[in-house]
Amino acid sequence: MGKVFRFHKDVDTDQIIASQYLLYPTVEEMKEHTFESLDSEFAKKVQKGDVVVAHENFGCGSSREQAPAVLKALGVKAVIAGSFARIFYRNAINIGLLVIINKELYYEVQSGDTVDVDLEKGLIITEKGSYPLAKLPKKMQEIMDMGGLIAALNKEA
């Protein structure tokens, strides 16, 4: 079970992690600035297992992989949005951050609600009900199953 942090439509990569932090040496040093412009307390409040819920086009903008990386480093279990921008989606899968497309959840939950993503049952479970998990494209599921693209690469090599 985790807490919901709910965001709007078109959350861009600059909001997830702003340019001025991208050249910090490590993701660990960047992560405290996650969502800084939208909620300056986010990095302090978020706990392992929490879930980010958003409207359409989450992660639009740049190809900066720091965006999914800081979310993962903060322990965010999944990002559930109506739709994702292409590069963010691919980057998330590559590093093993769970990204789930769901058009309803945004309208059903508020920030602070509890939600559980049960991968075995294939369900998103909220206080009000449950939603089936959409299947990932096959190629992406394979990458997720192997634990991300680098793990896949190390297996191939």
């Binding site: 740049s62 190809s63 900066r64 992989e65 999914p68 590069i87 691919r90 980057n91 590559n94 590093i95 991300g148 693209l149 680098i150 690469l153 191939e156 090599a157």
Partner: peptide
């Protein structure tokens, strides 16, 4: 097309 650094690394290696 734009990619993240993991995709980039995969392509760089393979």
């Amino acid at each position: 097309t734009g990619v993240g650094c993991t995709d980039y690394l995969y392509a760089m290696v393979t």
